[in-house]
Design a protein around this nucleic acid. Structure first.
Lengths: 129, 129, 129, 129
DNA sequence: GTGGTCTAGACCACG
DNA sequence: GTGGTCTAGACCACT
């Protein structure tokens, strides 16, 4: 379920974080579900355990997972909240980019054209898991 | 005109690149206009000349400026083309983000609401230098 | 495998780039094979690590290799594509030179003579690794 | 008749050399014809006289022109010989490139196709000024 | 240990 | 004086 691309410029621990967050967003990892242990995942991906540990630590700090000493790491049960925060962040990024596009000379027609092609391409795909 | 933020995680040379590209986009630097020399800018920003040199080198490869030995660095005259390429790239990024927002559950109403607030905020600002 | 000629007017980092590209073209370096580390190669050639670093950086931008922090530099797996691009570029150069030769007075007989001696000298050497 | 492109990566004095050699090759400058003086040309191109001087010096060393103190610089009368040397050099370069193309995998069919398109494009253009 | 960035100081080719 | 290359030495992020 988790894959690493060594050609990706992002550090491995970030790829793991993004990967797990993605699985949570798509409800492929449910609240309170146990994650593989650091050693398991390290073996599976043939990666240094320190790297996995770092990913898990940052995921815990971000509230995506929680760990209990001696038992393991588990998905937190606030995935809905995380999803909303992330959505908000995405809208902010899109606004920033949109303003930049307009600064660069994109007129109203072009913006409308882009938006309609975006919404049509994804018609009927909202709110479903 | 060019500033550096040491808190910014991006390397200095990238900040300089982004800074100059921005000035070109907004036509604050016109084609064939001379840039500050490597040593001048290095002094002005209290930065090592090598770092400025690297920024200029990459700007030249990107086609934003051209260098002539013994004379200096000058703005290239293809700013319009660069602007279009950049606009295209922005739209691609926006599309990717938009699809992600929809995946995360943003419904049509929300997308429409976001888009109208974006276009209203920037009303009448397109296509002017 | 990599040598530097100090009499060569090209800068050292360009010689290294050409050298590695050549090895890739001839399949002496295979996709995903690890290159010597920056420091290793610097030691081996008695050259400053920064110079090697620059060569590797440009090779990465050209898509010949990819770098991963903490691990090393590796040959990219698009060598066939690079080979085709390079072949195309060579044909363009040859066309430019050929037209110049004709401008300078080389008649058809001479062109034919040159071409047949070229193709005979390399008979049966195409398409093999 | 002589133009300089500041965006060209070649140094200015080399551009001047190439320019004059080209005019000689095409017989637009005839043997014993007088060239503009260093100062004249420097004024005309708004360029440092030292740069022109360097170009003339190298042209004299290459046998393309000769200078007589106090009188000026003149085209040498061995243009035919120079043309032949240059043609020879071009054929050598083409041979080197051709061998490289074959090394890179260009088969006989492709070489033939290239050659015929080259010779057809320039049909009937040999040996005329 | 590995790549990536930066500083300080130097030399060369060009104008 | 200006860009371009190189060396020496250092620090940081990542594995």
């Amino acid at each position: 379920m988790i894959t690493i691309d060594y050609k990706d410029r992002r550090p491995i621990y970030e790829q793991i974080i993004a990967n797990i967050e993605n699985l949570v967003e798509r409800n492929l990892l449910e609240p309170n579900e146990q994650l593989p242990t650091v050693r398991q995942l390290a073996m599976e991906l043939s990666i240094n355990p320190n790297t996995i540990q770092r990913a898990y630590t940052e995921l815990e700090r971000a509230g995506v997972i929680y760990s209990t000493r001696g038992k393991g790491n588990f998905i937190a049960d606030n995935s809905e909240q995380l999803r909303q925060e992330k959505t908000l962040a995405i809208f902010e990024q899109m606004t920033a980019l949109g303003m930049r596009a307009i600064e660069l000379g994109a007129d109203e027609a072009r913006m409308n054209s882009w938006f309609s092609s975006l919404t049509q391409a994804t018609k009927g795909r909202g709110k479903n898991d």
